[in-house]
Design a protein around this nucleic acid. Structure first.
Lengths: 204, 204
DNA sequence: TCGCATTTGTGCTCACATTCACAAAGTTAC
DNA sequence: GTAACTTTGTGAATGTGAGCACAAATGCGA
């Protein structure tokens, strides 16, 4: 396939494929067809084929995709072939839940630091991590942490995001219910539980 | 505007508008133009006008949208004008965080019950709610709870979803990292923290 | 009352995403 | 070796949503 800009939606689905392939890796399955994968993920086969083909041909006609090497290729594409360090901002209930969340490890993420502004929490432990004060956020670059998860109240989130950007953070997962204004070079993905819940009654 | 099916993307943005308008209501602002609202939400003005116009004309030309009545209309559209009861499944760290999450109240949601399968937790309190066993899920319909938040491990989520559907639940907010297969009449919205984080390194 | 400024509502166009349909390439059976 | 079958990769068609541009409507000042 000729070079084309890769659709955002395609990129968004890649971690989905990677998770499914990682699972199949563990199950010991050698290959998987776009049809089987589509059934698992509840997508249509051509979508999967097209998505994967944007990054080059890595399937075998008549057989399907080799599970292990396809997974490895997606890891490389998404830069998940190296362990990615992540800073967690906020050691409240949500932050604590995020710190213990088992889902990040499939993608090789490593929560490497936790920060909170409350003096009462600083120095306490959360799992194996010691909670640090917000000043220490400024030193993230030296610690090679360029990703952050924001798990603090909406009112504090914008100021926090700006601090993270100044500290050299390149990607932010925002769990606060608000928009974060950052320079274009920084990528923000927001998950808003209340907004997601908000549409459900409409469809009842 | 002639009748048309309302785009999913439009519905998805409605809670965003409602939250902004609720805030403006509190601030006491009488009216807001699509331009001002767009600046706040980081959208383009025509998008907001088009979205709102799908549900009928509720702005005034030359002035903008009346904050209070527009908010009320959106509440009615989204069925958020009545208090919506929600069941929370899972009283682990994530469930506990969800139970205490302050963001739901803007939309009038009411976490009305918490369930967990662990006998050690049943009977304990989480805020003002007593944790119930999973059997009690079957009685949700009688309690007029038709929405649920699933905050349990991925392996248990599918079985749980099926139980919820049998109990008459019409909408599910899924926080587990997996796809939930449910009948078409039931709406599922999934938030997957790991998948959202998974795309960030690609953009670095 | 008239003209100017403001802002909504909407037809239309363009861009993006999904899906189809089929050729190409491989496997399997005999 | 060949016919039948499977599955990928991709050009083209279709579907969906975003944004522009402008008419229509309203407010305000002189």
């Amino acid at each position: 396939m000729k070079y084309r800009k890769i659709p955002d939606e395609t990129v968004r689905r890649m971690p989905m494929y990677l998770r499914a392939l990682s699972l199949l890796e563990q199950e010991g399955q050698q290959t998987i067809s776009s049809r089987q994968l589509a059934d698992r993920l509840h997508l249509k086969p051509p979508q999967i084929r097209k998505d994967l083909s944007y990054f080059g041909a890595f399937g075998t006609r008549g057989i399907g995709y080799p599970v292990v090497s396809a997974a490895q290729q997606i890891r490389t594409i998404l830069r998940l072939d190296v362990r990615q360090k992540v800073a967690l901002i906020g050691a409240g209930r949500l932050g604590t839940a995020v710190a213990a969340y088992p889902g990040f490890s499939v993608f090789g993420f490593d929560i490497a630091a936790v920060f909170d502004k409350s003096p009462a929490k600083i120095g306490k432990k959360i799992g194996r991590l010691v909670i640090e004060d917000m000043q220490s956020v400024d030193a993230l670059e030296a610690r090679q942490i360029r990703l952050a998860i924001v798990a603090i109240p909406a009112e504090e989130a914008q100021a926090c995001a700006e601090r993270l950007v100044r500290a050299g953070v390149k990607g932010i997962l925002n769990l606060a219910p608000c928009y974060l204004a950052v320079p274009k070079r920084v990528k923000v993905v927001s998950l808003d539980m209340a907004m997601a819940l908000g549409v459900l009654p409409y469809y009842m």
